[in-house]
Design a binder for these strands. Structure first.
Lengths: 241, 241
DNA sequence: TTCTGACCAGAAAGACGATTTCGGTCATAT
DNA sequence: ATATGACCGAAATCGTCTTTCTGGTCAGAA
């Protein structure tokens, strides 16, 4: 069904996604119409439908693109740091990359103002992404690589990493972002605390961590890409009659 | 205005609060009527108004009572632990006490299903309670007492403690409570991580911490009690004309 | 071909009066 | 004194109808 041929409309798609991102973040998914997106992108409404099957497909493609960007960003930060493979650095860079991307921050924060009614549809994917990035399996791998102390309960550690990220990404509903300490300071502290609290004495082999993380995250992304399309959930509802 | 004489209707008040607590948690503030509360408490509606000025006053008194209970609970846990003055123990017991109180958990989690429209009115008080319990001043005191490493930025530490608690208390909107590791396990891990990550080597003087915390929390509670009534916010809205 | 914008059907958003609900009061009973 | 529950007015809810909006299509322009 999907045309394997990549036409020159790729740039068109990007512009639509750019426009959609701006408008979704500013007005929310529900209050943004397809005409608005077309106008913002400087094309006609029909052209949007040449590039995407539906409004939801625009959202999906946008999330995919931004998710990849976050991942690239995180990997770049990691590679730039000679000690970037240590758990503390990984987590820090992941958080920083996420926090720097407004759309993904809203995604993980499940902001209803931004995603509106499609949030329900996206929910499983958020949960999936969340568990993928800091799952129990992840923690086990790190324990085997000697980057997390082996005696710690991997479930508890995964949960800790999860709710810490959740808290950091969602607390700006309560404390405005500009009243919090700068992200770099927070990131550094989180990194330090996790390093001291979870890593073995000496911090483990940072290079091994770097390789491990790169492999794991690539594999996860590929798996995601291979998944063809998000299952349609036509808000099934009804009695038992 | 408040009658200084404590009548025997104190038990009546308690029963009303018990009833209100059950109903608020089960049906939410909006869907619970004063008649419902009266019925659940086994008295008439008029009697409710003999004990409280308004429905909002019931909510306020309930939150005050449960807040005190949480504090008592936390202090009890702390006192029971010979090492309870260490930062890690304090934070852990605070979280556990909070998590064990359904109403206060909903309060800190800003659950709209529970608090309904009054949530807006309560919001400042939540923020106040939040900052009170883990404020920058708090952290500074602990640094002076040698329980938190002095070189750490107190703002960052306070923010870390804040968003961690926020994340833990609110993540069960996403991950059902019964799918998370048991609170005791999480509490222990949090304690361990914070101890290793924030405390100086050796952990500092637990006794001093215990005394300090008790004093600080008592003072905070007293200050709160002295505050007469929450300011009425009649949802002011309108232009600048 | 490539793209446009008028067009459509179904959904959502008002309009609005009738009806019900609910916080709060008070005359009355105990 | 203490407590009750019928009562009140404001506000919310409901039901119904009308109007507007909006995702998606398609005949035709470029």
């Amino acid at each position: 069904m999907v045309n394997p041929q990549v036409s020159m409309s790729d740039e068109r798609r990007e512009r639509v996604l750019d426009a959609a991102q701006r408008l979704f973040l500013k007005y929310g998914y529900d209050k943004t119409t397809v005409s608005d997106i077309a106008h913002e992108a400087g094309i006609s409404k029909g052209a949007v439908y040449l590039a995407f099957d539906s409004k939801e497909a625009v959202m999906d493609a946008l999330l995919m693109r931004e998710g990849e960007r976050v991942q690239e960003d995180m990997l770049a930060r990691m590679r730039a740091d000679p000690n970037g493979g240590a758990l503390f650095a990984l987590y820090r860079y992941g958080l920083e990359a996420l926090s720097d991307n407004a759309l993904m921050r809203a995604f993980y924060g499940r902001r209803r103002e931004v995603f509106g009614d499609t949030l329900r549809r996206l929910e499983p994917r958020i949960a999936d992404a969340e568990s993928r990035s800091m799952s129990v399996e992840f923690v086990r791998h790190y324990q085997q690589a000697g980057l997390i102390r082996p005696e710690l309960d991997p479930h508890a550690v995964a949960f800790l990493l999860m709710f810490m990220r959740y808290g950091l990404l969602t607390i700006d509903e309560v404390v405005p972002r500009d009243q919090s300490p700068p992200l770099a300071v927070i990131g550094a502290l989180i990194a330090e605390v996790l390093q001291l609290g979870l890593a073995p004495l000496g911090g483990g082999d940072a290079e091994a961590g770097k390789r491990l993380f790169e492999a794991l995250s690539r594999a996860a992304l590929d798996r995601l890409k291979r998944q063809p399309a998000p299952p349609n959930t036509p808000s099934e509802e009804g009695g038992t009659s």
